[in-house]
């Protein structure tokens, strides 16, 4: 199925199309395609009768929506207060210096992408990261290095 068809299919699910269903539609599209893109915005705009600029503006406002495709390994790094106090900062520094990866970015080879989130609600086990929904607790740069190495070798 092409991307456009998938988007059409998602739009079919909504019986009533107006700006109130915009966020759920974008959420569905993102979970289907991994990220948003121009095509999606144009299609949704046509169907919802909304200017694309408004959809783009909305999508860039919220943390959830991404326009860059996710990497093969999507790293969510918790930077809540607790994880921060326990050293989440050094993990961020490590990723930035070694993978040249900053929040919201994807590495050039598409292997890794990073999303810094605030509080995963697992404060005792911090610093917490999750990679593709798999949780890692008490991560320090040393441990992160091994995790990344293992993933790269796979």
């Amino acid at each position: 199925m092409s991307k456009a068809e998938k988007i059409e299919e998602i739009l079919e699910r909504y019986s009533y199309l107006d700006s109130k269903s915009l966020i759920p539609i974008l959420q569905d599209i993102q979970s289907e395609l991994g990220s948003l893109n121009e095509e999606a915005i144009v299609l949704v705009g046509q169907r919802l009768n909304l200017p694309t600029s408004k959809i783009y503006g909305l999508a860039t406002f919220y943390n959830q929506f991404k326009f860059e495709p996710k990497g093969k390994n999507h790293i969510c790094l918790c930077n809540g207060t607790s994880c921060r106090l326990k050293g989440a900062k050094w993990n961020m520094v490590y990723l930035e210096e070694n993978l040249k990866l900053k929040n919201g970015q994807t590495t050039r080879n598409g292997q890794f992408s990073l999303e810094v989130v605030t509080c995963m609600g697992a404060c005792d086990h911090g610093p917490v990261i999750s990679i593709n929904e798999e949780y890692y607790r008490e991560v320090d740069p040393e441990k992160l290095k091994h995790i990344i190495n293992d993933l790269t070798q796979e």
Binding site: D18, S19, L22, F61
Partner: peptide, 21 residues
């Protein structure tokens, strides 16, 4: 979809209306 400011009442309403919060 994730924005700290949406804890603010009027921003939350904007977000529910499908707008920037």
């Amino acid at each position: 979809p994730g924005a700290y400011v949406c804890g603010e009442e009027t921003a939350l309403i904007k977000s529910l209306e499908g707008k920037r919060g």
